[in-house]
Computed example of a mutant assay.
Amino acid sequence: MTLILGLLLDAVMGEPRWLWSRVPHPAVLMGRSVGWIDDHINHGANRRTKGTLAFALLCLVFVAFGLALAAIPGHIVDVIVLAVLLAQRSLVDHVRLVAVALRQSLPAGRTAVAQIVGRETRSLDEPGVARAAIESAAENLSDGVIAPAFWFAVGGLPGLLLYKITNTADSMIGYRTPKYEEFGWAAARFDDLLNLIPARLTALLIWATAPRRSALPAVMAEAPRHRSPNAGWPEAAMAQVLGIALSGPRTYDGQRRDYPFVNAEGRRMAGPADIDNACAVLWRTWALAVFAALILTLF
């Protein structure tokens, strides 16, 4: 029941600005801790060893903090921490803002989508902006909602905090660049491991909300085409549900990456209406996840 209450509280409250404008969000604190080890340890020789040990220490600290919180009697703390570290409401709000901005103008759409993606957005056309928003919606549904809920169900607050610090570290230092390929190796590999089940579970939940049940074999065939071993699953499911092509070429730091399309036969002329449909899929998937949590609670 704690998991269900956390999911519901996050959906209702989201991330209230009045609170997080006064105190730092826990995710911000996690980011600062990762930034600290990056600034102070990521230099010189043996970067893989240094990064692995520093990341392992961060994991131990946050698991210990989770154990301390879990020792508090009652379930109020569990519900609040879970709701704070879930991102369903904020994800939908941010993705929907891209559709609103894109209806105003292409430059406004580019500015809005730049808040939720890491690629360069200056040269994106309208379909490119829409596809970028939808890809972010699918990937962050897994990383920000289903995976945290899954690891809370498996390991309580320690499991939740272990996942969140790992995912935060991966998003900051888990890149294959000269600076981070060695130092962020452990964080990136552990994030892949922790997302192995949730990413596929997310794809299954997205598929289960769709009217076309025949899309599941296509999801399983298309997901491995993605550059990521995990993100491809929710993106492939979303692509099938909406009938559009996702992933594909994009630009990072001035360099074009010719990644293959997922569901290459789908429409590439996406627009604000497709973003709206993706937001509807996010809510239907969330509702199915709540229902699944209820069934697990009862049985």
Rank of each mutant, 00 (worst) to 15 (best):
K50P: 01
A68Q: 08
P260K: 14
A54P: 03
V154D: 02
R227E: 14
I206T: 03
R213Q: 11
F190G: 00
A130L: 05
Q104P: 00
L69Q: 06
L91G: 04
W20H: 04
Q240N: 12
W36A: 12
M220V: 14
L196E: 11
A130C: 09
A293D: 08
S214G: 03
Y175S: 01
Q104C: 04
L7R: 04
A11Q: 12
G271I: 04
A137E: 05
A112E: 13
R189W: 06
A27Y: 11
R284F: 10
Y252C: 11
A264L: 04
G243R: 05
L102R: 01
I116G: 04
V262Q: 10
F190S: 04
N140G: 01
L60N: 00
P229T: 12
A138Y: 02
T168A: 09
R256L: 15
L124R: 03
L85N: 14
N167T: 10
A70W: 09
D258Q: 15
H40M: 06
L85M: 15
V113G: 00
W36Q: 08
L288S: 00
R267Q: 14
P158C: 10
L86S: 11
I37W: 11
P16S: 08
S214A: 14
S90I: 10
L204A: 15
S214Q: 13
A11W: 14
M30T: 06
I4C: 00
R225D: 05
S90N: 07
A108G: 00
P148W: 12
T121Y: 12
A169R: 13
E120L: 04
N167G: 02
G74N: 11
L160W: 07
R122E: 14
L5F: 15
A137C: 11
Y252R: 13
D93T: 12
I41G: 00
A169P: 00
N263E: 02
R122F: 13
A221P: 02
W20I: 01
G109D: 01
D143M: 09
R47F: 00
A292G: 08
G184D: 07
V281D: 02
L193M: 14
A293I: 02
V290Q: 04
P148V: 05
A56Y: 07
I146W: 01
L193S: 08
S214E: 15
